Each structure stands twice: as structure tokens, then as C-alpha cells.
Amino acid sequence: MNTLKTLLASAAAAAMLSAAGAAGAKELRYAHFQAADLSSPKHAAALAFEGCVEAKTSGAIDVQIYPASQLGNGAEILEGLQLGSVQMGVVHDGPISATYKPFSVLALPYLFDDQAMAWSIVDGPFGEALFEDMRAQTGIRVFALADNGVRNFTNSKRAIASPDDMEGLKMRVMTAPVWVRLVESLGASATPVAWPELPGALQQGVVDGQENGVTNILNASLYQHQSHVTLDGHVFSWHAYMMNDAFFESLEPAEQTAIEQCVVIAKTIHRGMTAAQDANATTLLAEKGLTVTPLSPEQKAAFRALAQPAVREFIVGEIGEEWPDRLDAAVDAYRAQ
């Protein structure tokens, strides 16, 4: 926490530095959806990015952070990034897959063994190729991915220890069809609900449950209207650090370098905070009153046997074989090391 306080102080100092020359500064509107406090990985990372960029550019870039969906939901932020009305956004994977379909390849369930494996693959040649294709197709530059948490199922009805326990449950999913296929392959019904509307949907009983990482469950108080969580870790979910490509290209080379370097710092903070919460999921969620159901490797295999082929078939139907095959090759290469 002392480190985060230092980052906050640095951000404030950088803001004061930039104020003197604000008239000539390049405004960088930075949007994310988590709460504006240091317990939120997205916001802690955003403050670090702000302080870093404004210090490295001597205030030539003025970073303005808009947390808590102030500039809209994920789809609206992506539209803003394409139009240039938002210069930078950190958006979760569901809306990205709706804007750039190949991103849905990362929704293949029960694929990565742990964070080290997942990070290595998205930071390596596979991730670089995917991001460049997205930039070329959408005009949105992806710098990096940070953890949106290992996704687990919560619900208000019963413990889930096998796919049979999913039968009859109404589960909220993100607003992209691949997530519908995932949940339906396990026997539950799927209802797409945008992130800002999710707490209300749980409170009003529109859905029985949802699937998210520990960070989001805690940050949005999703546990308040849920009684069970199953630690199945079906998908390593992501937040993408993105920028309007035309804005980035308009910057001076030294400013571009500052942006890239400061994203590395933000990504590292974001990943570390989220991974720590995932590692302590049982304690953190039990403290919030949830009954926690861990799964053995054999139990998880039963979920994988149903979900992975169904989701892969759907993804291939949407985007073809190229990106699933590339991801499979990256996984195989990692395991062969």
C-alpha cells in the first residue's frame, strides 16, 4: 500500500507540473470502469500511468482519468477509441470480442495452467500478432493485456461441483456470443448483460448468477446477492490497454516511448494486484459470506470436456482456424520449454 500511496503522490505531483503548461498540453482522456480507489487494480494502474507519463513528458501530455464507466460502457469506449473522442481505454475482453472478433480466441476455456503461462503467451509472438491485426482492422492500438481475473461462477441457488449442477441456472455473461456458448455448453441458460447493469440484474433476480474474477466480484460488490462461488477458473480473462492509433502516431517519438514504458508499469501493477486476489480467492470470498467450492483436477476435467470443444467450434465458425491454431501452437510451445 505504501508503494501505491507513492504512486498517487507522484501522480499528483505530475498533475501540478503539467498545470503550468496545460494550455499547450496534449489531452489524453483515459477511461476505465472500476471504482476510483487504490484497491481497484485498474485505478491504481491508471494513477501510476498518469504520474509516469506526465513526469516523462514534462507535462506535454495531460492524462485525464475517467473511472467508473464515466465515459460509457465497454462498447461505447471502444467506439470512442475508434473515433478518437477517447484517446486511451482499458476495456475487458467481452466488448473487445464484439468489436474485433479474433479477440474471442482468448475465451477458449480451461486452456492456461496458470498466470505465468498466460502472461508468457499474450506477451509473446502470439499476442503481438493478434494486436497488430486488431490495429490494422480497427484503428485501435493494443499495448498490453492485464488480468481481469481468472473467471469463476457465482450464483444464489446452490453449490456447483459438476456440470449437472449448472442445469436450470440463469447466468449473466458478457455481451459477446462466445460467452453465451460457454455457459450453454455447461447446461445453464445465458443472459448477456452489460457490466454497469450487472449488480442490478443480480439484485432483482433477472439472473441467478454470473462469472467473473475475484477482483470484479469484490470491486463491484457482486457477492451481495450471491451465496455460492465455484473456483473452476474456466477462462483467464483480460483487460486490454488500448489507444486510438492516430493519436499515438501524432505524438513525438519520445512521447510514444514514454507511453509504451508507462504502460509496462501500469500493466505490472494491475497484474500483480489481480493475481494476488486470485491466489487468495478462498479466503477473500469466504470473508464476504460466499460458500466456496473448489474443484479437483478430475472435476475440472468434466467441465473442460463439455466446454472446450463447444466453444472452439463456435470460435472457428466465427473467425476460422487461424487464430485458434496459433494459440494452440503457442500453448504447445510453452509446455515444451
Rank of each mutant, 00 (worst) to 15 (best):
M1I: 03
L4W: 03
K5T: 06
T6L: 13
A11F: 03
A15M: 05
A15T: 15
A19V: 01
G21V: 04
A25L: 07
A25M: 09
A25N: 11
H32Q: 15
L38P: 11
L47N: 03
E50A: 11
A60P: 04
I65T: 04
S69E: 09
Q70S: 12
G72H: 06
G72D: 03
E79H: 05
G84W: 01
V86W: 01
G89H: 11
P95K: 08
I96E: 09
A98R: 14
T99A: 14
Y100D: 06
F103N: 13
A107D: 05
A107P: 01
A116N: 11
M117K: 10
D133A: 15
Q137H: 08
V142S: 15
A159V: 08
S162T: 14
V173R: 15
T175D: 11
V180S: 07
G187H: 13
T191E: 14
G200Y: 06
Q203R: 15
G213A: 10
N216K: 08
A220I: 00
S221C: 00
Q226H: 00
S227G: 06
L231M: 08
D232S: 11
D232V: 07
W238H: 09
A240N: 02
M243A: 03
E249Q: 15
A254F: 04
A254G: 03
Q256L: 08
Q256M: 08
T257H: 10
T257S: 15
A258P: 14
A258W: 09
Q261D: 15
C262L: 09
R271N: 15
T274W: 00
A275H: 06
A275F: 05
N280P: 04
A281H: 10
T282N: 05
T283V: 09
V292L: 05
V292W: 04
S296C: 07
A302R: 15
F303N: 13
A307R: 12
P309E: 06
V311Y: 07
P324L: 03
L327R: 11
L327E: 09
A329V: 02
A329Q: 14
R335W: 00
A336F: 00
